[in-house]
Nucleic acid binder design. Sequence first.
DNA 1: CACAAACTGTTAGCATACAAACTAATTTGC
DNA 2: GCAAATTAGTTTGTATGCTAACAGTTTGTG
Lengths: 159, 159
Amino acid sequence: MNKVFHAITEKQQDAATANASDMTSDYQLEDQVGFILRCVNQRHLSIFSRLIPDLTPTQFSALAKLCETGQASQNELGRMIAIDAATIKGVVDRLKLRGLISSESQPSDLRRLILKPTAEGRQLFEQIGAAALKVSEETLRPLSDKERHLFIRLLMKLR
Amino acid sequence: MNKVFHAITEKQQDAATANASDMTSDYQLEDQVGFILRCVNQRHLSIFSRLIPDLTPTQFSALAKLCETGQASQNELGRMIAIDAATIKGVVDRLKLRGLISSESQPSDLRRLILKPTAEGRQLFEQIGAAALKVSEETLRPLSDKERHLFIRLLMKLR
DNA sequence: CACAAACTGTTAGCATACAAACTAATTTGC
DNA sequence: GCAAATTAGTTTGTATGCTAACAGTTTGTG
């Protein structure tokens, strides 16, 4: 397989500034932050779906945020959890279909749909809340406590 | 926060609401590693598509790995860049459609499709290689050099 | 007031991503 | 030697996630 795993950013910085004529020799896909990010995300999604088979991470985010705020319009909810208007529609539709949230038109602004968690939605959120914390714990398990805090701090800077 | 009103809501039918405020107080979506990971990935994808509009990150990964290895079977390629068999098929189809890679059946094992980058594929890879390194650089820009190395090291541990 | 600008939700189209079920070809194990 | 297990690739279905275009609604400005 591939043996080059630990030649981190040395090469990419050189090549970023220099003129790379032979990409193949100095470009290592495995060292690129985007590639590793995707792999880590992949692992996280796998942990999530194992510990919380009932909801996707996105659905859980939407439900959690709605439980936290009490109510929100559809696009507002999307903005709060960084999901665009086109995507949040599908997420909301599926949560509504399962009876976890409700929607009603807002009389003072006919464009808006006011979303609220249903009793079932709140109950489910309570049920899986502990598991959600376990997901984070398991995702970060390869790191020490000190490293975890450091990692989260750095990760937040890259948002 | 609304613990003050606990006595009031407690009697109501929606005890779930009272529980929800408990959960809300110790669960912060924004602090969960999975949520931030998704946001950082989002930012990275945005940088990538701005600097490299020609290919998606996944397509670039496939092309880059194929240029590096010279050739590989379809599933083999998928395994090397952490893409499952169902997904890699679409990626390969689109790269073939654009003439960036070629495929031929392997006589010694009729199940296998041997993929190779075409001359155009190699040329494109060379062309956008520098931009690919810039993507990593811009993604990590909020961090100092020291922090970048540290971050990549921690990120790799979480793969 | 009129009208352009901005906003809300919707739709269509494209590209990952993953699970599950399936065919065909090859390898293993007895 | 041959049935069983494994592997390669395909297909279907579901869910994100993004862009672009669109219709209503509301707002801001002249």
